[in-house]
């Protein structure tokens, strides 16, 4: 599961200052224009590599941090069917992390370096995982809607220009489609269940509404555009376009089972074909991105605990004769 990449003004400015070999750059951009995939050994602009590492790494972190809120409900899942589905689902997410770390390694950064940067706060993960999964109904909302949102983003990104990332995303999207079914089944089951169940899922939906709007990143009006990211097919759709596509697909499905979304202004403008909604407090979004969300600290502490507790195991596997080899696929 993953949201959307966006950059600060400072980062965008830095990016525009890098100088690449002009002839190589022209040839590179022509390849992308023709729809070719860029592969690990190919020449690529410095910023292309840098931005891809940043994005794939964030995506990988999002998978393994995203496993934590759902992971806490594995032991509490009611019944064999739900329990087995949830363990398999969370296991898939960790598998996606593994796949993405490998894709990112082809660009020259090791998994260990990436995990270190996650723990130091140098690299981020999707903001949505800084919110708590308070009740069992959160499993339905996350499985259906957060995964649904992630699929919107990932399907688009799988059409990008970097071969290893696209191939990883194709497999991830295939698995995510089962997660969506799992989440949808649970969501509809609770929404059409007893009063207690219905209230639970409505309450969870109310809490997740804002984080879901935040999921695709700041509005196009305020976020920093990078022509380069679009031209190089690292970013393929704007934040607002993806958000709109998500609302198009999912609001009717939520309303269909008689649940509501906590925003009176939420409606589709039939003239512009765009969804309109109340301002989802972008200050909060930036606050949480910068570390001050309800679960930022806890998520990183759990990861740090896992890293530290498992260090002796990893060290025992090290053979001094082994050399690190960058994967090539």
């Amino acid at each position: 599961m993953y949201g959307n990449t966006f950059m600060t003004a400072e980062e965008a400015k830095q990016m525009d200052q890098t100088q690449d070999n002009p002839q190589k750059l022209i040839a590179f951009e022509a390849r992308i224009e023709r729809g070719e995939k860029i592969e690990p050994g190919d020449w690529m602009p410095v910023d292309y590599r840098k931005q891809l590492i940043r994005m794939i790494e964030q995506h990988a972190h999002s998978e393994i941090v995203g496993a934590l809120p759902e992971g806490t409900w594995i032991t509490r899942s009611p019944g064999f069917k739900r329990k087995l589905a949830l363990i398999a689902k969370v296991q898939d997410e960790i598998g996606h992390g593994q796949l993405l770390y490998s894709a990112c390694e082809t660009l020259g950064k090791t998994r260990e370096e990436m995990l270190d940067d996650l723990l130091s706060g140098k690299s981020k993960y999707s903001n949505v995982f800084n919110y708590p999964a308070k009740t069992w109904a959160d499993m339905a909302v996350i499985g259906f809607l957060v995964d649904g949102a992630a699929i919107v983003n990932q399907v688009i990104n799988s059409k990008g220009s970097y071969g290893p990332y696209c191939r990883a995303l194709e497999r991830i999207c295939f698995e995510e489609s089962f997660h969506l079914k799992q989440g949808h089944d649970n969501f509809v089951f609770l929404a059409t269940g007893t009063n207690v169940q219905r209230e639970m899922v409505q309450e969870a939906l109310n809490r997740w509404y804002i984080p879901l709007l935040h999921f695709f990143g700041p509005s196009d009006k305020t976020s920093v555009h990078s022509e380069k990211l679009m031209k190089w097919k690292i970013k393929l759709a704007t934040n607002d376009d993806m958000r709109n596509q998500f609302l198009d697909q999912y609001v009717p499905k939520i309303r269909e089972v008689g649940l509501t979304l906590p925003d009176e202004k939420l409606k589709k403008n039939l003239e512009t074909n765009k969804w309109e909604f109340s301002d989802p407090d972008w200050d909060e979004f930036y606050r949480v991105v910068n570390g001050d969300g309800p679960c930022n600290k806890e998520r990183l502490e759990v990861r740090r605990f896992a890293e530290e507790q498992g260090r002796w195991v990893r060290q025992a596997l090290v053979n001094p004769q082994d050399k690190y080899v960058t994967p090539f696929a």
Binding site: I64, A67, L68, G71, I74, T75, I87, V90, Q91, I94, G95, G97, Q98, Y101, V302, F305, A306, Q309, G310, R311, W312, V313, R314
Partner: peptide
Amino acid sequence: SEWTGIGPLLEEDI
């Protein structure tokens, strides 16, 4: 199942 997410390496979580 409690190891899911906190194993010493991702392969062991899985």
